[in-house]
């Protein structure tokens, strides 16, 4: 089952606005895979949200997880 990832702000300039990746068990393996596919992401600053909540620890992903890559916020 693919994991769907939505990508925002300057990160979308690097990796496009969305991605679907197969065989991703958790957020640590997602990051590893993303940095192989898009080396520029490895030096970018971003947070990961799972189901609209920012996660700071490795988090298990399922086919229903909504994963988002969030660069530093700059609203206002």
């Amino acid at each position: 089952m693919p994991i769907n990832i939505i990508i925002f702000g300057q990160l979308a300039d690097i990796a496009g606005g969305s991605l679907a990746l197969e065989n991703i068990a958790d957020t640590n393996s997602l990051v590893k895979e993303l940095h192989i596919l898009y080396p520029a992401l490895a030096t970018a600053k971003y947070a990961i949200a799972v189901d609209k909540k920012v996660v700071n620890e490795n988090t298990r992903l399922t086919e229903n997880s909504i994963v988002a890559l969030l660069p530093p916020f700059s609203g206002g």
Binding site: G9, Q10, F73, G75, G76
Partner: peptide
């Protein structure tokens, strides 16, 4: 600091940079 909103600063020469708060 907390709302997921991003500002893209567009220059008159069509180039851009991402806003930093």
């Amino acid at each position: 600091t907390e709302l997921p909103v991003w500002g893209k600063e567009l220059f008159s020469d069509e180039t851009h940079q991402w806003k930093v708060n």
